Simulated assay, not measured.
Amino acid sequence: MPYITRNYTIGPNDSGRRLDRILRAVCADVPLSAIYRMFRDGDVRVAGKKIDGSYRTKAGDSLEIRLPDTGISDKPPSRPSAAGTDAASAFSRMILLETADIAVVNKPRGMLTHGDGGVDEAAKAYFSDRADLSLAFVPAPLHRLDRNTSGALAVSASLRGAVAFSAALRAGAVRKTYLALLGGDMASEETWIDELERDTNVGISVVGTSGKRAEAWAEPLLRSGGYTLASITLGTGRTHQIRAQAAAHGYALAGDAKYGGRALKSGYVLHCASLSLPPMTEDDEARVVFAPLPSRAIGVLEAIFGDDFRERIPAGTAIRIGEIDRKSTDRLD
């Protein structure tokens, strides 16, 4: 069988990754068993030397791959389609902060974090030129917001940013503060520390006697007619954490039928209002990124707390809602 040789140069967004993982991206049509056979047979070389799949790449490495020339091609250059251009424009309108390593966007309610029409697809389109310079790196959301939760969401713009953010998240150095419309009258600050279990049969999280530790701090900002507008800061990041803990402590989100919330025609209001980030690199600085409320949420809160509710938010909270985000439009469920 005739063979061909492909030559690549490892760039910054592939540096430090295992070589076998890079080959799985470059040779997506090649079975995994065949990829490891290529390593054993010496068909994969770095700087002309046979190398193991566990090798951690370095920027500037010269990679040589010997492949059968039937049905295998280089990673094709991406050419933006009309849909891709629209997705890139949508991502651009959502951006709150952009650096060389990370972007923070204001995700609209109704948009998936991952999936068809999601933030991940928009990020790929927006960063398409940058992604084309890499063999395996794909810009993507670094944490998750539920479909009907809006607000600040971090997205990787480089491998360095993805690694740094993930490490900061594990260390508890990233702080997320939400604005939530709760059912019930919360008179004072509360600390919620629970064990959350996931019921995959019905797709909800429940407070139980075992599971993963969940920490949150809730502060009432405004109260009226059996509703509380609260600031909730997370100490952990569990699936449906705020929705499940609020319900367990007697304050289910208004409009959140899945967790027993009181009826609210417009659906629940849960918005990641601020994201506190530590320095991502040595030459970076700590930041707090504020996400303006979407106009729909403003309308819901004005109807409950009055047109001047923003002026009545206590000073010194981690919430800034003086602005309305009119750049992005909430999607329908």
Rank of each mutant, 00 (worst) to 15 (best):
R40E: 09
K212A: 15
D61M: 07
A248L: 03
P2S: 13
V288D: 15
L301H: 03
R170I: 06
R79K: 12
G118I: 06
K58W: 04
L301P: 00
C27T: 02
I204D: 00
D116L: 13
S15Y: 01
L169G: 01
L112E: 08
A214H: 02
R66W: 01
D43S: 02
V26E: 03
M280D: 01
R45F: 11
A103H: 02
A168V: 13
L229R: 02
A154Y: 00
A136G: 07
L145T: 04
A90W: 05
T233I: 04
Y178N: 02
A248V: 00
F39C: 10
N106R: 13
D199F: 07
R24A: 14
E323T: 02
A47F: 06
D69S: 12
R147A: 02
L270H: 01
P77T: 14
G235Q: 05
R170M: 12
A216M: 10
T281F: 00
D74C: 11
D52W: 03
V46T: 09
G211L: 11
G267H: 13
D74S: 11
A100L: 10
T236M: 11
N148W: 03
T233N: 04
S89N: 12
D61P: 04
L179E: 06
L234E: 08
K107W: 10
F137A: 07
G84C: 12
L135W: 07
A254C: 07
V138F: 03
R56P: 00
L97E: 01
P12V: 08
T9P: 00
R175M: 13
A318D: 13
A216E: 00
V138N: 01
M94P: 00
G42Q: 12
L153D: 01
F290D: 08
G237A: 10
E190I: 12
I204Q: 05
T85R: 15
G226S: 02
F137T: 08
E195A: 09
L181P: 03
T200V: 15
P77N: 15
S205D: 04
S266G: 02
G237W: 05
F137L: 14
S295D: 14
M38T: 06
E190P: 06
Y126W: 09
G225V: 07
R213V: 14
D41K: 11
F127R: 07
L67Y: 02
R223D: 09
S156W: 04
E311C: 08
V105I: 15
S81L: 09
D284F: 04
S89M: 11
L19K: 03
A303P: 01
E64I: 11
D29M: 09
R144M: 04
S54D: 10
R144D: 13
S205C: 10
D333S: 14
T191N: 06
V119L: 12
A82M: 15
Y259L: 05
G225P: 05
V138C: 04
K327G: 03
G161N: 10
Y259Q: 06
G11L: 11
R238Y: 00
K212N: 11
P292H: 08
K212W: 11
